[in-house]
Simulated assay, not measured.
Amino acid sequence: MHLHLRDEARESERRTPITPADAASFIEAGWQFTVESSAKRIFSDSEYRDAGCNIVAPGSWTSAEGDTVILGLKELPETPPALANRMIHFAHIYKNQFGWREELERFKNGGGTLYDIEFLVDANGRRSVAFGYWAGWMGAALALWRHLARAQGHDGPYSSLQSFESRMQVQQEIEKLAGSAATLPRCIVVGAKGRSGSGAIDALKIAGCEITEWDKEETVDLDRRTLLAHDLLVNCVLMTGPGLVLATPDDLGSAGANITTISDVSCDPLSEYNPLPVYRAPTSWERPFIEIGRNGSGNPVELTAIDNLPSLIPREASEDFSSQFAPVLLRFDHGEEWQAAKQVFAEKMKQAFG
């Protein structure tokens, strides 16, 4: 098997699906591993070279031999128009997003196959690999950092975010602010039992906050008044259908509503199933927080909803993901996860082109 790890097209994307240490294990198993040079990847070219990988120029995947498997994380650049290889990455096109048909047409033109990482699932439909824990951790940490900073007259992570070399940079800021805080926020995590929820809880524990943990059992008959009585809300619910609404704009300003900071880790504002219909578009690294209203006491309510949170802590996110992904990748492409992803690709191709 020949794997080719491409340089990411997004300038802000520093994560990698396979670390140098895990790449070395594939080479030991007899796989050929080619890695494109990258000036932004959290692990250096030399680390991959020392692991036994062959280092090549960025973008050289476009001329790879037909049996080479092209591995990446995020979406491909717009060219070439024909894709002939088997390709592994998060494509974000299977929910009929803008340009989905045009992206699949590139595979039709070249005869290649997409194995979308999001659709690597087991027989029970559970995802085999995900960045969920670090999405929850980073989303909650940002909200907590901003909440504590604002209470003490500081900006905190209010604008112009850049990726951190490690989570300790964020943790140290929170610990410093928590140490000088007059009071700590009462926090609630909804979707607490999932990967993202567990990450969010661990982040909030850095400051020693009081944390309420809700999951499906607590949201069947939602006590919105109790939810809004908290100071900081982290939403980690994965919505698969309509029904759950955590808060509306009117709810935020109702009597007894104390919420001043919201982190929507799930970040699905464009979906009709969005449980937080209080904003219309994701926030960004340039502007992580937006004001969405006033609470019951008249204080501003701020929200963060960044759709690529794990990219902010690329080292921990990559190490965690790679440890999950490596054993799955060793089963390429006969494992049940790969067959599931291949089936979804075939179904979407049929939907697009008949």
Rank of each mutant, 00 (worst) to 15 (best):
S159P: 13
H147I: 07
A151M: 11
S163V: 13
S163Y: 15
A140E: 14
L144V: 07
R150G: 02
N124T: 08
D116W: 06
A141I: 03
T113Y: 05
L144T: 14
H154T: 01
L120H: 11
G125P: 05
S159A: 15
A143E: 14
R127E: 03
D122H: 06
R127Y: 08
L120A: 12
G125Y: 05
Q162T: 15
M138V: 12
R146Y: 11
R126C: 02
N124P: 13
T113I: 13
R146C: 03
M138G: 11
L161F: 08
A141R: 07
A143T: 14
Q152N: 13
Q152D: 10
L120M: 15
F119R: 06
M138L: 12
F164D: 11
G153S: 01
A143G: 15
I117A: 07
D116Y: 04
W145C: 00
G136W: 04
Y115T: 08
G139T: 09
W134M: 00
F164W: 15
T113L: 08
P157I: 00
M138K: 13
F119D: 08
A130P: 00
E118N: 04
M138E: 13
G139V: 10
H147Q: 08
Y133N: 02
S159V: 06
G136S: 10
Y115L: 11
N124A: 06
A151V: 10
F164M: 11
L142A: 07
Q152E: 12
A123P: 07
L148R: 07
D116Q: 11
A149C: 10
W134Q: 05
E118S: 03
L148K: 07
L120D: 14
S163A: 14
N124D: 15
